[in-house]
């Protein structure tokens, strides 16, 4: 218990440092907010054009489709604000050998590299996404109640856990290959598939997005929950998958760290 309190205190201290840095540039929040709105527009326009020709596509109306877009944008913000700045820095730590300093500290190294550089700068982006999903869900003929909204948020947390784990897998490869910075951009563009309901994809691509890289689960499931169409079994599957991914990421990280032979010694 004491150990847990210690960890929480360390995490809080690191978060506070990151927030204070960001707060020095308060105007950037406004800029980020405007940019997020702009990009949301860029994401929605192709859908407006497509839905101009059809009332519904594969059982999703325009409004329902925008719920998925909202969830996607929120997840994108989580990735860019809370996952990428942290885990992305590991590649550099490995290359420069400065991971030594992290490993020397008494706290768990994975925990340290996972929270130290979070930036609240992407909160407006997450807010825009959640607002879009929320407004569109409220406009459904059968709007979701607090229970469904809670399940949707829980599923978004699961999605975050899965995304985090995949990023750990990618970063762990840097212990072997050293230069992998732009693999993360590849992940970002694979996540791009999540801006549409997974049923829009056919054949092998849908299989890939369902079973191998569960992007469909990450953005479509929360939207399905808000529509009241997700079975309890589906929600439990998502929880199990997220737990499995987290566990795997822990194992992969432990294996990778054993490979690390500091650059200085």
């Amino acid at each position: 218990m004491k150990r847990l309190r210690q960890i929480l205190r360390a995490v809080r201290a690191q978060m506070r440092a990151a927030w204070m840095t960001a707060m020095q540039y308060r105007l950037s929040f406004l800029g980020e907010g405007i940019v997020s709105l702009l990009w949301t527009g860029f994401t929605v326009v192709p859908l407006i054009v497509a839905y101009d020709y059809r009332e519904g596509i594969e059982g999703w109306s325009f409004n329902e489709c925008l719920i998925v877009v909202g969830v996607f944008i929120a997840l994108q913000g989580i990735l860019e604000g809370f996952i990428h700045p942290n885990l992305g820095s590991v590649v550099q730590l490995v290359r420069r050998g400065t991971l030594d300093y992290v490993l020397l500290k008494p706290l768990d190294a994975q925990l340290m590299v996972s929270v130290a550089r979070s930036t609240p700068l992407k909160l407006p982006h997450i807010g825009v996404g959640l607002a879009l999903a929320g407004v569109m869900a409220a406009r459904l003929p059968d709007p979701p109640g607090p229970a469904q909204a809670g399940v949707a948020l829980l599923l978004l947390l699961c999605a975050t856990a899965i995304l985090y784990s995949i990023y750990v897998f990618i970063v762990s490869t840097s212990f072997w290959f050293v230069r992998v910075d732009n693999l993360s951009f590849l992940l970002i563009s694979v996540l791009d598939t999540g801006r549409f309901p997974v049923v829009f994809y056919t054949g092998a691509v849908r299989v890939f997005l369902t079973f191998i890289l569960p992007v469909g689960m990450m953005t479509t499931y929360p939207a399905l929950a808000l529509r009241g169409l997700l079975s309890p079994r589906g929600a439990l599957t998502a929880l199990a998958v997220a737990a499995a991914f987290l566990l795997a990421s822990r194992l992969v990280w432990r294996t990778a760290i054993r490979r690390y032979s500091s650059a200085s010694s």
């Binding site: 192709p46 859908l47 497509a50 596509i57 732009n182 951009f185 590849l186 970002i188 563009s189 791009d192 598939t193 801006r195 549409f196 829009f200 994809y201 056919t202 691509v205």
Partner: peptide, 11 residues
């Protein structure tokens, strides 16, 4: 990473 047209192709 320039795979956006692929996604649009599916929709």
């Amino acid at each position: 990473t320039a795979t956006m047209p692929l996604l649009m192709m599916f929709i």
